[in-house]
């Protein structure tokens, strides 16, 4: 009896401790577990915020079947880095432009964060950010992809992103005539 009672108490305290925990555990499609700051997760992801508020977070690891371990690791890494980053001075001083700007330029650490990713990892992260409703991460990753397109000719863009040209010769000619200024002369 005494042993049982002790067990029950232990169970009770464990539950309380977990409700008060400041991290949540997420589980990738391939079963790997990741811990992330509860505060950062709730702030950065509308989906995770909803799950935390709704109590549907599983202490043994909340299943995120749509996200692979590599992408989830990056998501968690981003959340933790975000939680530790100090907002830049520019952000504090120019509160006017911050409130009205539709998109804020990535900060230095965010740039570095996406720069080190392989193309595959970047695309997986875009999808994960979209799935988890992480607006800021989505902006930062999309910005990175757009950087890969900037200044590239249509042919170069098709090559980088493996896009099939589905225009007919006549259609392309029509575009080139309408927007003669935008294309090389030769």
């Amino acid at each position: 009896m005494e042993v049982d009672k002790g067990k029950g108490e232990a169970e009770e305290t464990r539950k309380v401790a977990e409700a008060d925990r400041d991290t949540v555990t997420l589980k990738s499609s391939d079963g790997k577990l990741f811990e992330v700051s509860k505060e950062a997760a709730a702030r950065l992801s509308t989906v995770l915020a909803g799950m935390i508020a709704g109590g549907s977070i599983d202490d043994n690891g909340t299943d995120l079947k749509q996200i692979g371990s590599e992408a989830l690791e990056n998501v968690v890494d981003y959340c933790n880095k975000h939680a530790n980053s100090i907002p830049s001075a520019a952000l504090i001083s120019s509160s006017i432009s911050f409130n009205t700007a539709p998109f804020k330029e990535p900060e230095e650490w965010e740039r570095k964060f996406v720069d080190r990713l392989s193309h595959d990892a970047l695309f997986d992260l875009v999808e994960a950010a979209n799935f988890l409703g992480m607006e800021r991460l989505l902006d930062v990753t999309c910005h990175k992809i757009s950087e890969m397109m900037k200044g590239k000719s249509p042919d170069q863009i098709r090559e980088v992103f493996n896009i099939k040209n589905d225009y007919t010769k006549e259609e392309l000619e029509e575009i080139r005539q309408e927007l003669a200024w935008a294309f090389y002369d030769d």
């Binding site: 397109m149 249509p154 098709r158 099939k164 040209n165 589905d166 575009i175 935008a182």
Partner: peptide, 10 residues
């Protein structure tokens, strides 16, 4: 750049 992107595919 938008014009260039637009002329890659429909």
């Amino acid at each position: 750049w938008i014009v260039w992107a637009a002329s890659t595919c429909k």
